[in-house]
Design a protein around this nucleic acid. Structure first.
Lengths: 209, 209
DNA sequence: ACCTGAACACCGTTCAAGT
DNA sequence: ACCTGAACACCGTTCAAGT
């Protein structure tokens, strides 16, 4: 009945922190936020309950720590795809698909950028980690938008695009979910064309329904 | 130390249900989902804790009951504004502003349409109430979109518009929040123009940045 | 039938004590 | 310093007992 307990050395705080984050992510993947129980985190990391709290002051801080790691990895996966994209539709589609993959794990209530704004009582290190991860993601997307030919004001365009990505993901949390009888792929394609035309970087004639 | 206890008659289940919903909404307004405690609901409705559970099987059912009522009222407030709207930008702006007003209360994790899809283990009556309320809201918006001149396929357009509305609201949960240094009004205006152009119902020249 | 409220279960968090 | 785990607090849910 022994779990996977990392043989981290007594006092190795860096590795311990990684163990905790890994245990937390495993639980989140197994059943979302509800499955993230501090006792199970301690178990998975091979430490006692109290010790978890010497690394993350609250469950929310731990969650955001795991989430920030996820955003970093997501950005790394996304970057090459954004660089290969030849037009806006590909950029938007890649971002939307990548973002939705993490949704069942991290839940609809959590969104990188919303969290950055909301975070009031987070541990400074945790908050900074989230900010850095988020800035990287938004930066990569902004660059891709410019490469796709957008020449207007980047800030409102990013706000609108990111809202569409997160809004869509919010309605298609699970694999096969349909929303208003529209499939995920159809909705994303429609959104990409509509927004692309609206931003003046997709030919109005493309994919007219 | 006595709260506002409605003098509902013993056995009047209809009025009792209304008392519970009203107490629940009051708590939600006072502090969001975290403030919705079943003991306080019982208190506010003037009944005992156990009785709440004979009306709503779980806290989630109660929450959705309150939320459905909110959607009904929101639709009634929105309908005349949609009917007066002279173009798509006004339609989108009215819908976005109205939707965001309920966000601080009902929380970012909850969204009418997402809930309709997700609801697996809800009480039939509660689920039906949510479905009816939601259908009314979406119907009113769809009609407004057609009146604004949209002639394409309504389903994907509604999916994209609704995702944008909820996504934007998700990033501007509180009054003064900015997101990517863009104000709510600026983001909504930009989204309305962009989506309207993309759908072919807003003049490409309008409000070019 | 409808309602009560004590009791249970679960889990986030703390802290005095260990090494 | 770092770590432990029993204890506490809070709150959703149940159910035997009341009217």
């Amino acid at each position: 009945m022994n779990r996977s307990r990392p043989a981290t050395q007594w006092g190795d705080r860096d590795q311990r922190r990684i163990d905790i984050l890994r245990a937390g992510e495993e639980l989140l993947r197994s059943g979302g936020y509800a499955a993230l129980r501090m006792r199970d985190v301690a178990d998975g990391a091979g430490i006692s309950l109290g010790t978890v709290y010497t690394y993350f002051a609250t469950k929310e801080n731990l969650f955001i720590g795991v989430f920030a790691e996820h955003v970093l990895r997501m950005t790394e996966r996304l970057r090459p795809r954004l660089e290969e994209a030849s037009d806006f539709v590909e950029v938007f589609t890649a971002a939307a698909n990548e973002y939705r993959d993490g949704y069942p794990v991290f839940g609809r209530q959590f969104d990188a950028l919303a969290l950055v704004e909301t975070a009031d009582a987070l541990q400074p290190a945790v908050e900074q980690g989230l900010r850095d991860a988020t800035a990287g993601l938004i930066g990569a997307l902004g660059e891709a938008l410019v490469r796709a030919g957008y020449e207007g004001d980047l800030r409102p365009a990013m706000a609108v695009l990111w809202s569409e990505v997160t809004g869509l993901a919010n309605h298609y949390t699970t694999e096969r979910r349909e929303f208003l009888d529209v499939s995920w792929d159809e909705a994303v394609a429609f959104a990409a064309r509509t927004l692309g035309r609206g931003l003046g970087i997709v030919d109005p004639a493309e994919g007219r329904t």
